[in-house]
Nucleic acid binder design. Sequence first.
DNA 1: CTGAAAGCGCTTACAG
DNA 2: CTGAAAGCGCTTACAG
Lengths: 348, 348
Amino acid sequence: MDENKANKRVGIKDIAKEANTSIASVSLVINGKDNGKVADKVKKRILEAIKKLNYQPNLNARTLKSGDSVLIGLIVPSITNHFYPELIKGIMQRADELGYYIVIFDSENDFAKEEAYVRTLRSISAKGIIIAGVYDDDGREERMFHELKEQGVPLLQVDRFNPIHQLPYVGLDNYQASYEMTKYLLSIGHERIALLMPQGKQYIIEERRRGYEKAMKETDHDIEDGIFYLDAIHFSNLDDCVKNIIESPKRFTAIYDANGDISAIEVIKELRKNDLIVPDDIGVTGFDDVYVSALIKPALTTIRQPKYELGKNAMDLMKQIIDGNNTENMGIQLKGQLIARGSVSVIL
Amino acid sequence: MDENKANKRVGIKDIAKEANTSIASVSLVINGKDNGKVADKVKKRILEAIKKLNYQPNLNARTLKSGDSVLIGLIVPSITNHFYPELIKGIMQRADELGYYIVIFDSENDFAKEEAYVRTLRSISAKGIIIAGVYDDDGREERMFHELKEQGVPLLQVDRFNPIHQLPYVGLDNYQASYEMTKYLLSIGHERIALLMPQGKQYIIEERRRGYEKAMKETDHDIEDGIFYLDAIHFSNLDDCVKNIIESPKRFTAIYDANGDISAIEVIKELRKNDLIVPDDIGVTGFDDVYVSALIKPALTTIRQPKYELGKNAMDLMKQIIDGNNTENMGIQLKGQLIARGSVSVIL
DNA sequence: CTGAAAGCGCTTACAG
DNA sequence: CTGAAAGCGCTTACAG
């Protein structure tokens, strides 16, 4: 079976022969590096030959020789997380415009996989790596990031960033968004607000906690025993969290799930199992604003993340890094938007 | 700025020097092609050197020389379509196990883009291409597919297939699934069922129509004027479609939206705008079973597509094609599963 | 302005 | 069993 063997592809050599010139001139023309270096007549012949023979450059050869690749690596923790496809689309579309293409990986929130994929990306000489990191407490990820930086690999954190890494990033202003959500809940009369957080020590999650605390404290509200920690990946302790919240002597009137909308929807389901009605008995708000959030009953009050914009900005910044512009300590934080819907009611 | 310049990477040459042997032996060991050709002692030294110097093979060089790439191209019509992320995950996970990685593209249902991406994939010598094609009426896509086949590029259709292309594919048994959906509706008392279809001439959609017609005809039900065509991408004429259905003298009791669940949800919204209650006044069923389908009220009755399995099977078949096994006319059709929920009620 | 030549890091016959 | 050498398709100084 040699059916899979590609017909001999036309190369720069064939173009040179067809156009009756040297391969050097052909290369120059292809790469637009002929500023008067190639005679117009010759250039025209080359262009015609390229069209005639339907020439496609061999990018492996180009990358091997010049070190320049058109491939950008993208590692996300879970492509089926409703948050990512739109962000990925933003990255892809901008990448396409800039002449780059995306090699995509799903780390499944597993650092070992993330690390292996980074290695793969180095093997294919990817021009840069964009990472939405795993939950990581023990500093291995940070060490890997810095190793990459030292090796001169353009690296960018997206969504899951931490400024402490001293690496460029694109993400949300989680502090501000969370502050606004909490202020909103307070403004419609909720005084005892439970904050549900993913377990682990992600910076962006800590920022959400800080925003909540700021809003609560500056209005003299008690936050003691108000924070609950959820297994954000498998929701394995979600029933316990909900139980602890509804049985708390604090008598919470609202749950702000900083873990995201899908998580908030699961919380609503669990509340129903406990015969509690949302929003009448207790309010629930989320984070992200995914497609389903507006469709469920009651529709979910949440923070909208500009997912597509996040992706677009990420690729733009990656381009800056690749071009060697000074991106030292450069971080972009986009604003979230409060979307008030029906999952939390107004208390007099 | 030469910060982006990678430190000189360690190559096969460095390993040879470190292990005090030739680069040929190193290459043999790396590729597992040393069957007693390399002395155990030497092999051990090579392995140690690889570990010590943290060697990563340059896959561009390997691909250039041997023609073997680890990259598989994947082109989907819309990554934000709720159907695809899980399918992509299936492909990615299986690819990873097989030592391949995915370069992903979103054609945005635009054939010109699809074609450009195929060209890019050829440029990077991708080992194979998996495509969920665009809606395409004029045969350009089919022509491109055959050109690729002639050129010996491993090619596979996923989800959006058409057996007429004589190309391997992995998709759903749409005929059977649609037949079952229609039979189900008939079995619970619906006699006048409107079929909502995407415009265009996709094979898989035609199959859904065939399944519907078979079920209707074999139970002597009228299908005249029962089919409505929707702009499946932008839903631009969805209001008209719904209007035509509810104002039809046929007095339909159910709408089977073969365009998918997201479309069916939009139909439900539109019915509500017309003060019609689902399922009491009219039933609605969908296709795909995405995450949101179970969450809305009423929960959507639909056909579950095994998305992850579709992806996994696709990558498995791609591997067969790459390996040069006989895949002539090989198509895999997985079964859909009827999921009865509350969006259509039982009629006596 | 053009052409011959080196070399990117590999793989793979081939000679010893 | 090992090593020297050609060559994959490019890019890029460099000589003319």
